[in-house]
Amino acid sequence: MLTRAMALAPGESARAKAEGKTLAMDEESFRIVYERTARPLWAYLARVSGDPALADDLLQETYCRFLSLSDPPQEEAHRKNYLFRIATNLLRDHWRAIQRHGETAIETADIPSQDHEMANVPLRSDLGRALAKLKPRERQLLWLAYAEGASHREIAKTSGMKEASIRPLLFRARKKLLALIGGATLETEKA
């Protein structure tokens, strides 16, 4: 098990640099992409999964898969959509694995725990509690549409659903969410 403050040993760092050539981009470019995209991606994973620790694992796995692409998207919006699509697929795989075996699909043995930091994450807002009562697909749709401002086409691409079905599903999900939240809470939370 690694510690959170773990740094790469000098030899390991050199080897990692050498092997970095097999990845989709160099470390500096990756850092820039990561800084720009990781926070909204983490928020999406945390809200949709309802589990910050899982969001942490899936976030790392998302970037690992992104880096393993032979030709990753260069355009920023396209890249962001691609990352969200990978994350959505990982979430789906995770839920399927739980349904099948009652265990997680992601290997977590080499991932440091950040439980102490998770305590400060505002996951238990009224919105968070209401979202937790919705189906995973409804949470995905709502988050992509209202938090990410994704168009129906982008949502369809990310979630693997038909574009035409997004609108009615989104409408129903919104109505369910509002019924759970209540109009009064909506106003106080915004204030």
Binding site: A16, A38, E117, E189
Partner: peptide, 23 residues
């Protein structure tokens, strides 16, 4: 509003660690 709050408080793993895991 919720997204901003979450993003601000997100305990992101260090980019170097993610890079290391990818290698």
């Amino acid at each position: 509003y919720d997204s901003e709050q979450l993003c601000a408080a997100a305990p992101l793993p260090n980019a170097g660690r993610v890079w290391w895991r990818a290698t």
